[in-house]
């Protein structure tokens, strides 16, 4: 289908949009929080993708390339809304260094509503690595290409993101039912 798009077949691009629209829209929705903003970002992503198709390298998988555009678009929207999307000292929440029990705080299954709320409560740079890793099944190398950062940074963000979720769960739940 991508081949046909590169050959100038607009109908094929429409098929690509339908194939990826839910994934891109969901990604944008979970980063931006609002349906209207997510739909606008998703639409902008596909328009940009269409424009940039001649620069797409066929040797690389299509999904990470598309998610890279979606990431850039969402970051632009967040910046335009005054959100800080850079990593600096202020962005790092205080996660205690001595947290031996945090891995045990997610002892029971997390339901959909709770994990959605937890993801929404994270800074976007952290929630997106979790979404790309687990929901989109991308490896650290692919995520690094999507975000335009070194692979080590991706691994560090993943670690931080998981730690933040565990910390939030521990804070909300206390040492009660979530610790086995």
């Amino acid at each position: 289908m991508v081949e046909r798009c590169l050959g100038g077949d607009n109908e094929a691009f429409s098929g690509l949009v339908e194939l990826y629209q839910d994934r891109i829209y969901s990604f944008a929705l979970r980063l931006l929080g609002g349906e209207a903003a997510a739909e606008e970002a998703a639409q902008e992503t596909f328009v940009k993708a269409f424009r940039a198709l001649p620069s797409y390298n066929k040797a690389q998988p299509f999904a990470p390339w598309l998610f890279r555009i979606a990431h850039n678009t969402c970051m632009d929207v967040l910046r335009a809304g005054g959100r800080n999307v850079s990593i600096d000292e202020e962005d790092f929440p205080d996660i205690p260094d001595q947290a031996p029990a945090v891995d045990d705080t997610v002892g029971e299954a997390l339901d959909e509503a709770r994990i959605e709320a937890l993801l929404a409560s994270l800074p976007p740079l952290y929630s997106e690595v979790l979404l790309l890793q687990y929901r989109e099944d991308l490896g650290p190398a692919e995520i690094a290409r999507v975000l335009g950062v070194p692979e080590g940074t991706v691994k560090a963000r993943l670690f931080r993101a998981r730690a933040m979720i565990k910390e939030k769960l521990a804070t909300v739940a206390g040492p009660g039912p979530y610790i086995e």
């Binding site: 045990d104 997610v106 002892g107 997390l110 959909e112 709770r114 994990i115 929901r135 998981r162 565990k166």
Partner: peptide
């Protein structure tokens, strides 16, 4: 259970 696994599973 491993906490990270549960987070991954939920996502």
């Amino acid at each position: 259970k491993n906490g990270s696994d549960n987070i991954a599973k939920a996502i």
